[in-house]
Each structure stands twice: as structure tokens, then as C-alpha cells.
């Protein structure tokens, strides 16, 4: 479903602020793979995700989603294939627009937007049913501005928007990191439900090793702009935090199993 071939990305090349973020990443996701991504700060997790989403072009390599080479496509055209939820709850929704308007925008992802009415009655009913599945009471506040919602509610809504039109690839960029533990757990549970229901191919970055182990059928760890560890199948099921830390020490060649970077 997703094929990443040797992508490289350097920020501020040729200046004192030069930062090599991706040093040749190769990654293939099969249809229905749910991959969790961990790694310390600056390991390249977010850069990888943004490169796939098309936020910025890569310096080298190619990205193919569902057989379509998207390497040269701008962000808004890749959106046809990709659903995204961001770390910042403010980022995934339009605060000054209504809940139902946000959903209507998401329902048209990947389609032309003409002079037809922006939201029709039939959609409204469908959204009401859909919002009810979140169990947050949002179905009764469909014309409220999204800016009035809490961070957790906004993330849940963004998740719904990202998956409203079934994406070929779902990108979750630490989407529970800014939430309190209880809300984070709830949003993660909803995430799991939607991914299972729609059998979505998913790439989920997380800071939380336990979450990374508990969710998905495959786990990758990034280190210094590369995929350093790739565990799947039975091995993934048997993974523990201790085992993961040991693997990291091996890869990074240092004993001080950077718990500051990895644990949370």
C-alpha cells in the first residue's frame, strides 16, 4: 500500500543550521498493516510522516501510495490518498467553522469542489449517526464552532474526518501526545476501533512505548534518520519495553539506553 524507497531529506542544507533528518529510509507497508513508529527526538519520525503527506518535497527517493507515485504531488493532491491526524489538536480542524462543516470538508477530500451546496441534508444525518459513535455527545452540537470543543473532542473529530473518506493510508502523528492520559486512552481506543473496522493501512507515531507495543501488527524504531528496528508478527506480539530498550542499545551502540528519549 505504501512504498518508500530510499528517501532523504536535509533541512537548511549548506548553512550552519544544516540538519539531516532522513538518511535513506526504506519502508513498505502491506495492505492493512498497522505500524507503530517510535524513536527519540530528532530521529526523523515526523519528517518521515510529513514527507509522505507531502508537506515538503524530499531531496531523493520515491514514495508510492496504492501504486501511485506521489513523490512529485503537492500536499493537497496527496490528500486524496492520505488521512491525517496531527499532534496539535488545533491543527486538524477549522476552529471558526461548525462541526458539521468540518466533516463536510473532509467528506470531499480528493474530490473537486464546485458550486454545489457545501453540506446537504442527507450528509447531515449521516454525520449525526457517525458522531454518535464517538460517545462524546457531539451529535447534538453539530452546528457548534469547533473552537468550543476540548482538545480531546477535537482530536476525536479530526480522526473521524481523516477516515470519513476511507484513506489508502492513515497517518497519525503523536495524535494523543497533547491530551491528558484519560482522554488519550479514549482517543486511542477510538483509533483502534476505526482502524479495525475499516482495515486501514496505518502509520502511527507515538512517544509511548507501551502504546507502540500494544497496538498494531508491526513496530519500527527510527534512529538518526533511518529505520533501525523493524519488528512484526509473533516477535512483535512478544515484545516488552525491556526487550525494546535492549534492542535500541544494540542499534545505537550505547548502553545508556536513552530512557529520556524513549520512555514516557
Amino acid at each position: 500500500m505504501l512504498e518508500i524507497r530510499n528517501i532523504r531529506k536535509t533541512f537548511n542544507a549548506g548553512t550552519v543550521n544544516e540538519k539531516v533528518a532522513l538518511r535513506g529510509v526504506d519502508l513498505t507497508l502491506n495492505d492493512g498493516d498497522f505500524v507503530t513508529v517510535i524513536g527519540g527526538n530528532g530521529a526523523g519520525k515526523s519528517t518521515l510522516m510529513n514527507a509522505v503527506a507531502g508537506v515538503y518535497p524530499v531531496d531523493e527517493g520515491s514514495i508510492t501510495i496504492g501504486g501511485v507515485d506521489v513523490t512529485g504531488l503537492p500536499e493537497h493532491r496527496r490528500a486524496k490518498y492520505v488521512g491525517r491526524v496531527f499532534q496539535d489538536p488545533m491543527m486538524g480542524t477549522a476552529a471558526t467553522m461548525q462541526i458539521e462543516e468540518n466533516l463536510a470538508l473532509a467528506a470531499r477530500r480528493g474530490q473537486g469542489r464546485g458550486l454545489r451546496v457545501g453540506i446537504n441534508k442527507a450528509e447531515r444525518e449521516a454525520y449525526r449517526t457517525l458522531l454518535a459513535t464517538l460517545g462524546l455527545g457531539l451529535e447534538d452540537r453539530m452546528t457548534s464552532k469547533v473552537g468550543l470543543l476540548s482538545g480531546g473532542q477535537r482530536q476525536a473529530l479530526t480522526l473521524l474526518m481523516a477516515t470519513l473518506k476511507k484513506p489508502k493510508l492513515l497517518l497519525l502523528d503523536e495524535h494523543t501526545a497533547a491530551l491528558d492520559p484519560k482522554t488519550a486512552a479514549k482517543v486511542l481506543e477510538t483509533t483502534e476501533t476505526i482502524i479495525q473496522r475499516d482495515k486501514l493501512t496505518t502509520l502511527m507515531i507515538t512517544h509511548n512505548m507501551r502504546d507502540a507495543i500494544a497496538h498494531g501488527n508491526r513496530l519500527i524504531m527510527m534512529y538518526e534518520g533511518r529505520v533501525a528496528i523493524d519488528v512484526s508478527g509473533e516477535e512483535k506480539k512478544k515484545l516488552t519495553v525491556e526487550r525494546l530498550l535492549a534492542m535500541f542499545s544494540e542499534v545505537s551502540g550505547s548502553d545508556e539506553a536513552d530512557d529520556k528519549l524513549l520512555l514516557s
Binding site: H76, R77, A79, R84, M91, M97, L105, R108, L115, G118
Partner: peptide, 20 residues
């Protein structure tokens, strides 16, 4: 639809691009 996408662009360009 077009007018809504204009409003979304002003309200949150990141979200707008993410929604295509």
C-alpha cells in the same frame, strides 16, 4: 463547496491542505 474551502483556507490552511 468552493466557498467552504475558501473559508477553511482562511481558518486553518494546514487542515485545508490535509483535506485536499
Amino acid at each position: 463547496e468552493m466557498g467552504s474551502s475558501l473559508r477553511a483556507t482562511g481558518a486553518n490552511p494546514n487542515m485545508a491542505r490535509a483535506q485536499g
